[in-house]
Design a protein around this nucleic acid. Structure first.
Lengths: 123, 123
DNA sequence: GTCGTTGCAAAGCGTTTGCAGCCTA
DNA sequence: TAGGCTGCAAACGCTTTGCAACGAC
């Protein structure tokens, strides 16, 4: 986006204010609270732009809808609960270096780790 | 599936014979070569069943279509090339233990690692 | 005033479902 | 032969696109 619109601010702030990755629908619901006539298409348009400019990052997991979260520059570790399907963003405890090596010729620029199991609520 | 049908065998063998995760469309294309009248719906029905019975596992990455690969029982490390979008299945070099720790209360049962960067072909 | 951005509605696309006929056990 | 499985086509839900009006610069 070249222009600084109210819609763009509302959408980005909705993503920033969340403490976990949100689906496009959830993001739109949050944003609509602040701007009732905001269209879902505008939400998708901003999500695409934000993700292309690396201000937000997508988090996908098989069988679940795509989610987005604010990109704070850190590599990400997520936890997916098999019981309740909730997705948590964890502190990165991998201490800088990628958690796995790639064969010769592959240039690693970043990584993402997904843990799965059961969360405290579903214990 | 309770019955051992030709369609089921063709679909599973198509997945097994690939050396990388395939999209439902790619799987259907491979299977159709061996069984021309095979429907895409049947492919999706088997993918769901195979994945529920953990014979195949889904691999998702933001902005890309979902993919499936044969589950050989190992935890998975994948490499996604930012240039050509190809997805590679790598040997697991994380030596058994999960590559990140989860906070107290989270019970970790498995993990998945995604590396991204550029592959040898796109160097 | 220009032209990038928006909201709405329609189109698009991958996936799922309904159903009559087929085929395995 | 019974009923699970299949192919086909229609339905579905999420995402994208077309377009006229709007509003940031």
């Amino acid at each position: 986006m070249k222009r600084n619109t109210k819609q763009g601010k509302v959408i980005l702030s909705s993503i920033k204010s969340a403490d976990r990755p949100l689906t496009p629908f959830e993001i739109h619901q949050l944003a609509v609270k602040k701007m009732p006539r905001l269209g879902i298409a505008t939400t998708y348009r901003h999500l695409r732009i934000l993700s292309e400019s690396h201000q937000v990052v997508g988090v996908d997991y098989p069988g679940q809808p795509p989610r987005y979260e604010w990109a704070d520059g850190l590599d990400k570790v997520h936890f997916s609960c098999r019981a309740c399907n909730k997705l948590y963003a964890l502190e990165d405890t991998t201490e800088d270096s990628p958690p796995a090596k790639a064969p010769k010729g592959f240039k690693v620029q970043g990584f993402e780790v997904m843990l799965y199991g059961t969360c405290p609520e579903c214990e």
